[in-house]
Amino acid sequence: MQTRTPAQHARLALLLEVAGTPKPGNVDRRRDLADLRFDHFLAGTVGAQRGLEMAADGAGVGPAFERAVEGMSAQGGGNTQFGALLLLVPLTRAARDDLSQPVVEAVVEDTTVADAAAFYRAFEHVDVFVADPPEDMAPLDVRRGADAVPALEERGLTLLDVMAGSVPGDDVAREWVTGFERSFGAAERLAEAEGPPLDRAAAVFLSLLAERPDTLVADKHGEDVAREVQERAVELHERRAVETDREAVEAFADDLVDRGINPGTTADITAAGLFIALERGVLEV
């Protein structure tokens, strides 16, 4: 019988995601990045608590997300889980009723201009890497934070509208307009995987990295590098299906860290999948 609340499962999902290893290119319990450490992620998870509780209590997605990001940012590393929280907040809100794709779709469809404004304000709490927008969209550049809210309100854009405008190019936003398709798929893979939860999290991360080029990698390093990373993940994922080759995955993880290549979007979707699997009781911790 489940004894944890949706907000507790959301925090646990963040912890399981960062602790899973090897997770090529990302912080895990054995690897830090140059300016971002494992302990920063632990502190970010603790800080996100109040915002996740707001979502579980039925607060608007935008204010709950802004509060979660504000708390997450209260550690020395900067942005640890911005993208993951952008997925977990609506999922946690949906879990009040029924954690299914139709309910999550209804949650994001009900978002308002005020939710979008809160999303923009969240960028004032932490630096988030965002690709430059087209020139005609400069007034709506999220990096402007609250300064962009008047333009947002003038155009009457809801938070779902903002997410839709980021597709293609941002696979976290893509989840919002596809019914969290990959997140629910990741939960199914976690249920089918073998081994303890942390091993499952690492394996599902690799499978997601093999599935599509990571959009954060594409934004930072170009599409060719993103495809290179995906192709290497495909090779290792296929090999892993027939034999245990942890050393090869470990070497891939070390190589990406050394090159500063961080598939953060894939980690965000892994966290969302972990939350769904925990809520549905198909992943026991």
Rank of each mutant, 00 (worst) to 15 (best):
D254M: 01
R50Q: 09
P24W: 00
A55T: 02
H9G: 14
A131D: 08
Q230K: 05
D32R: 04
P90Q: 08
L88N: 11
E250Q: 05
V257I: 03
G185H: 14
L198M: 13
E211V: 04
T112P: 06
A74S: 06
L88Q: 15
R67I: 13
R143C: 03
D245K: 09
V172H: 07
R11Y: 02
D214T: 02
P63S: 06
V204K: 15
R246T: 04
A202Y: 14
M163A: 08
E66G: 14
F123K: 06
F129M: 01
A267W: 09
G185V: 05
D97V: 14
V225S: 11
E135C: 08
V103Q: 10
L88A: 10
V46N: 10
T270P: 05
K220E: 11
A241M: 15
R11L: 12
V257L: 03
V89I: 08
R37H: 08
R227V: 08
E231M: 13
S166K: 11
L157P: 10
D32M: 12
R280Q: 11
N262S: 13
V172T: 05
V285W: 08
A114F: 10
V282P: 10
L216N: 09
L190D: 04
K23A: 08
A116N: 10
G222D: 06
G62V: 09
P133Q: 01
A56H: 07
A164S: 04
A202D: 14
E279Y: 03
D136N: 03
A138C: 09
V46H: 09
V217M: 05
E135M: 12
A19Q: 07
V249C: 08
Q8V: 11
P134D: 04
A186F: 01
D268L: 04
D258S: 07
N26V: 06
E124H: 12
F180H: 11
R37P: 03
W176D: 01
L208N: 03
A193W: 04
V177I: 05
L91S: 15
D254L: 03
A95D: 15
M1E: 11
E235T: 00
R246H: 09
G62M: 10
R93P: 14
G44C: 13
F275S: 05
P196A: 13
I276T: 12
A114P: 09
R189F: 12
A193S: 08
E238P: 02
R227H: 15
Q101Y: 09
D28P: 13
L274V: 12
G165C: 02
D171Y: 00
R246M: 15
V234K: 06
A186Y: 06
G145P: 07
V18H: 04
A68Q: 11
T158H: 01
D115M: 07
L33H: 14
D268M: 06
D258N: 00
A106V: 06
P102T: 00
D97E: 02
P6N: 07
M1C: 09
V126I: 00
A253G: 02
G281I: 12
F38I: 02
T80N: 03
F123G: 05
D255I: 03
E235W: 01
P197F: 07
L209D: 05
P139G: 08
E70K: 13
V108L: 01
V225M: 10
R144V: 05
A138G: 06
D245I: 04
R93L: 13
S183Y: 05
A271M: 07
A94I: 10
